[in-house]
Computed example of a mutant assay.
Amino acid sequence: MRSEPLTWPPVAAQAASLLEEAADLLVLHRDFAAAVERCEAGCDSLGPGSGTSPVPESSAEVKCSLCVVGIQALAEMNRWREVLSWVLQYYQLPERLPPKVLELCILLYSKVKEPQVMLEVGSSWLRDQTNRGLPEYGGLLELCLLHVLLPLGRFKEAEELVRSCDLLDSEQQQTFLGAICESRRQWAQREEMHSAAEEQEDTATETLLGALSQKLLTVLTLLRRALRSMSSHLCLLPYKKMLLATFLLYLVVVRLDPASPTSLPFIYKLVQLFRQAWAAVFSPVHRSPVKD
């Protein structure tokens, strides 16, 4: 096992050495950032895999393994949002992703409840004629259906994908179509339950708003009656008495200096007069003025 990398091309051997370091950093040392750095260095040494030129099998295997380790390290650092873009920078086209890398990406984004990220990538990979000849195609088709298309409610697209696949026999197609039909039924049932819950919530909200509106209307009606009663009572007060009370209050508060000694007798008489005026204005029964 130790002599096998010696038969590889120098570039692949260097990448394999980086792969071994990355695996040790991931599993043994739990240094995920350093593991990602080793994976990036190994992939960069192998060059971009655009699919336009044949790639040695050894280099392709090492590159795939480097991406697998890198995906796991990024996930451990909770950097799963970077995984797809990080992988595509080394393969450029979604159709060129190795089956193992595509499988890990689908499972990862399904686990974090973001299957829509893999929708376009998975569909492009499955529709590629070259990939249909791979032995992993059937498993990836099922994986994409269960973890991407069906959770997103893409039932029509899933049916078209199954019916257009010549690699599936009639029994396999019926199995997949049955799973799609069952998923559609469950989806519709959840939608009905969700709609019913929303209707109940809207009804409860309308009832609450109606009760609050009724209470507010009652309070406003009582307030209007109170204001009307106060205004009617004030309008019944004689105009001259109101004017006298206002004038006396003005003299006490504004014009008179309470600190002056000469003003004390006058203040006393003025207060007495003010009390008489106040009693005459606001007392319901007329009382004779108090004599000094």
Rank of each mutant, 00 (worst) to 15 (best):
P265T: 06
P135A: 03
R225I: 09
P99N: 01
Q272S: 09
H147M: 03
K113L: 13
E4N: 12
Y239E: 15
V83M: 06
L26P: 02
S124C: 09
M1I: 07
T207D: 15
E61C: 07
P99K: 00
P238I: 04
R225Q: 13
T221D: 07
V219K: 09
I267M: 15
S59N: 05
L264V: 15
G138D: 04
P289L: 10
S263P: 03
L141A: 01
L66R: 00
V271H: 10
R224C: 14
P115I: 08
Y91V: 10
A197C: 04
K156P: 00
P151M: 06
A280S: 15
L134R: 06
S123G: 00
A23P: 00
K156D: 12
K113M: 09
T205I: 13
L18D: 02
K63I: 00
L248I: 05
K269F: 15
F247G: 09
W8R: 02
V285K: 12
Q214R: 12
R163A: 05
Q92R: 12
L220C: 08
G70P: 02
A196W: 05
G47D: 04
S45A: 15
L28D: 11
E40I: 07
D31A: 13
L273T: 11
K63N: 06
Q276E: 08
T130W: 05
D169P: 06
T205N: 14
L168P: 01
H194E: 14
L28R: 08
K269Q: 13
V62H: 04
Q189P: 07
E21L: 11
E201K: 15
L141I: 02
E201Q: 12
E201N: 10
F266W: 11
Q116H: 11
Q92S: 14
V55F: 05
V281Q: 14
R228C: 14
F176C: 10
H147G: 01
N131M: 03
K63C: 07
D24S: 11
V101P: 02
E95V: 12
C64W: 04
L237T: 05
G139T: 00
P48W: 10
